[in-house]
Design a protein around this nucleic acid. Structure first.
Lengths: 118, 118
DNA sequence: GACGTTGTCAACCACTTGGTTGAGCAAGCC
DNA sequence: GGCTTGCTCAACCAAGTGGTTGACAACGTC
């Protein structure tokens, strides 16, 4: 499970963490800021941030005893690329299926036994 | 964890399941087909498929004793929308930051104490 | 009807995860 | 120096996850 794509997906599978990402889009925040809206301990939030950090979605700076959290938007591209690749393929397949169906309609017969599971 | 977006992300957090999605883009497949490339039991694959099905990423038909698996590409849109929303916001913030930096450059001074965490 | 094929369900096991509490560290303030 | 503030680390716990094996149901074939 150590590859980054898996970690990114896993990190965003938690609604609390997605919420934090949403919050961080507005601007950097401290751990305390991020913890405020939820009724969980600060430690729990710190754990969530570690998950996001390991996924590369977030980086943490240092400002005296504060640790400002910053969103790293580039990682989103990794996901978008993965998704787009397969969505496009799926759509193309959909179109190809339409062609096959049209061909079947013309001849009133399936072209081969294939068409869905080649 | 029951909301669909969480389930979709969680489903795709596993490399084996992403692999299966990739395979299904080429065309529908049976459980046996999907199990073949991996050295895990058919039952394990069946479990993976249940996860994908619950996430709405996949649907299962019936063909005699076979259960053809079909990819439901529409669910990808859910993710893409979520990602795009926040990626755009993050980019806009980036641009705004540039403006602030440019302003600081002009005056040789920060406009306010804000700019990163409003 | 007996048998092989295809797949699911149930029980179990090792490991991970999201949460807790308690201790402790680093930095600013009295 | 002694205090609070902001945060992390460590240990623990209940629940979930990915894997196994064994039993069984549904269907086609002999």
């Amino acid at each position: 499970m150590s590859d980054q794509l898996s970690q990114v997906f896993a990190a965003l599978a938690d609604p609390t963490r997605r919420d934090m990402v949403a919050r961080l889009c507005v601007g950097d925040a401290t751990v305390g800021d991020l913890a405020a809206p939820y009724d969980v301990s600060v430690q729990a939030v710190s754990k969530h941030l570690k998950v996001l950090e390991n996924a590369g979605l977030v980086s943490r700076g240092r400002d005296a005893q504060r640790r400002p959290v910053h969103l790293e938007a580039e990682v989103f591209d990794l996901m978008t690329k993965w998704i787009e690749r397969y969505r496009q393929q799926a759509e193309e397949r959909y179109l190809r299926l339409d062609v096959v169906l049209a061909a079947m309609d013309e001849t009133g017969e399936a072209t081969t036994t294939e068409g869905r599971a080649p």
